[in-house]
């Protein structure tokens, strides 16, 4: 519907704005698979996002491929990185795990800054075509990117929802609740954790892969930006971490608020908005919007 409307009014901005929100839906959903379902707080979302983005830059310089393929490559790179991070940090819990993931982001950013092939600290330009030939039609490139991100968001949400209702979802929840009891109940906690870090990392990489084509100029400080790490945590927290709807609601709410602020006030106010909303929601609805609604429903049914 947004697409039809935007197409009709010929406003590219709507695509740009919606792309960003959809990208955050993917990131928030990916973060929630590890952070919400398993209870492992990942502060390094930006690193996984950037790995997806930089694998696209690398391929662009090396041998240009269509974006859907780049998304698959980004998923593979970040998924493997997620698996590796899982292995390296499996003995860490709580804040120690969070610090380790933050350290991973710093290490990777340093690596990319010093890697000339992908632009180093200067950044890399990616000139994208204005239009794209598809089945005889000429489509606007930003519409194409928007469509790709929309598909990714749908894929991420379907994956999260499927996991939630499957055996794996129960395994994830036991890890969040009590790992020792999980082991005693026969849950292979290590394997289940590694599955979570891999899936979560892979989706973040997928979100990052089309990013260089969207932004046109990629530099380490934008790919590893604080806003990715903060938003991917804040959005599920505000929406609610126990169900797939939470990150969706949080990303739409926070993403739209940020887009609105960028246009009306300034882009610098974005993180302030996130901070204020996070503080507000921690006080009013510690279990997020979804938790608040569920609570109200329960109270309403049981007068």
């Amino acid at each position: 519907m947004v697409m039809a409307f935007a197409h009709w009014v010929h406003v590219d901005y709507l695509y740009f704005a919606s792309y960003t929100i959809l990208q955050f839906i993917v990131l928030a959903t990916a973060w929630n698979i590890l952070g919400g379902y398993c209870g492992y707080v990942n502060f390094g979302s930006a690193a996984f996002f950037a790995m997806g983005a930089y694998s696209s830059v690398f391929m662009h310089k090396f041998y240009p491929l269509p974006i859907p393929l780049l998304i698959v490559i980004g998923a593979a790179v970040s998924g493997i990185a997620g698996l590796g991070m899982g292995y390296l940090t499996l003995r860490l819990r709580g804040s120690f795990f969070a610090i380790a993931t933050l350290a991973l982001a710093v290490v990777l950013q340093t690596l990319v800054v010093n890697w000339d092939f992908v632009g180093g600290s200067r950044g890399a330009y990616i000139i994208r075509p204005e239009t794209l030939e598809f089945a005889g039609y000429e489509i606007n490139y930003i519409e194409y990117l928007f469509f790709l991100m929309l598909s990714l968001a749908v894929l991420a949400l379907i994956t999260a929802r499927t996991i939630e209702r499957a055996q794996l979802g129960f395994g994830f929840a036991t890890i969040r609740d009590d790992e020792m009891a999980a082991e005693a109940s026969g849950v292979p906690t290590l394997r289940v954790k590694l599955i979570a870090t891999t899936i979560s990392g892979a989706f973040m990489g997928m979100a990052g892969a089309p990013f260089p084509y969207y932004i046109g100029y990629l530099q380490p400080s934008s790919a590893f930006g604080l806003e990715y790490a903060v938003n991917s945590i804040a959005m599920p927290m505000i929406g609610g971490t126990t169900s797939w709807i939470g990150p969706l609601v949080g990303a739409i709410l926070l993403g739209s608020a940020q887009q609105y602020a960028t246009v009306t006030i300034s882009s610098a106010v974005n993180l302030l908005i996130v901070g204020l909303m996070l503080v507000g929601f921690v006080i009013i609805a510690p279990n997020g919007i979804v938790g608040l609604v569920q609570e109200r429903l329960r109270a309403w049914r049981r007068p």
């Binding site: 129960f170 929840a173 036991t174 969040r176 609740d177 009590d178 020792m180 009891a181 999980a182 005693a184 126990t242």
Partner: peptide, 12 residues
């Protein structure tokens, strides 16, 4: 085994 201090899965 059962645990000395019960360790149920709190969110379920």
């Amino acid at each position: 085994r059962s645990f000395q201090l019960p360790r149920p899965f709190h969110s379920m």
